[in-house]
Amino acid sequence: MNAITLLTVFVLAVFIGFEVVSKVSSTLHTPLMSGANAIHGIILVGAIIVAGSASEPWLLVTALVAVLLATINLVGGFVVTDRMLSMFGGRAAPPRRRPSGPKRPSSRTERDAL
């Protein structure tokens, strides 16, 4: 693949990356970080390719370490994110997006006596 095609892919991916997370609420910062963290575990694909072409024992051992580390990143990342999110979803919980402000301006005079 030539350089300009790769550059095109890179630039478009930067914009998509910026765009998809630009409006995320702070509630989801932790799962989002964890989810993004899982995605870069896809370096496993690279580690497998390298290990598959290793011709000497020390190359193979080193490459297998990379496979091991990448698998931990990939599998652990998705599992832990899912566990986090399963706790969010425990109850039927639609995201609240009503206009903010005091819901019920309480008259507190009677309790002021306390």
Partner: peptide, 9 residues
């Protein structure tokens, strides 16, 4: 994707 979204985050 991770690099860009991680930067924004």
């Amino acid at each position: 994707l991770v690099g860009a979204s991680g930067t924004i985050l």
